[in-house]
Amino acid sequence: MSKKMHIKLNVNGKDEEFLAEPRELLIYTLRERLNITGPHIGCETSHCGACTVTINGKSVKSCTMFAAQADGAEITTIEGIGTPDALHPLQEAFKEHHGLQCGYCTPGMITRATKLLEENPNPTEEEIRFGMAGNICRCTGYQNIVKSIQAAAAEMNAAKEAAE
């Protein structure tokens, strides 16, 4: 066993400090150490995206990053995206447009989609399909996921316009 490291993270706005083996993968830090179980484990080889979180503004597959690499980082998971009383428009849209079935891919999917809409607030269907291609869903066939993201984009753009 190697020596433990002192790691600091800010997860969903909360500072966390702990000692961990260097080989601790970030997904396990989140799920098992911090009890943030929204991000899931699907493939473990960075293909499925169920473990997607946002780290310092980037969409990242947390199964393929050591917690040590994230030392000092700001991390947002699905738990930090909306609250029960104020859901994120993407969370509303996925509910409204049947963008999920078993729910297992959903946290990673929505977390990735928040970033996609930052990168491109007005994506075409093709851009959504390309921009979401790092997240696999086995249930929905993606059609309603695309629809949900389009609806959320429209909603967010309308809200932005109204605010201006």
Binding site: G49, V60, T64, R112, G134
Partner: peptide, 9 residues
């Protein structure tokens, strides 16, 4: 190359 998340890393 790969997908958006992987391209970020």
């Amino acid at each position: 190359i790969a997908d958006p998340q992987v391209r970020y890393m």
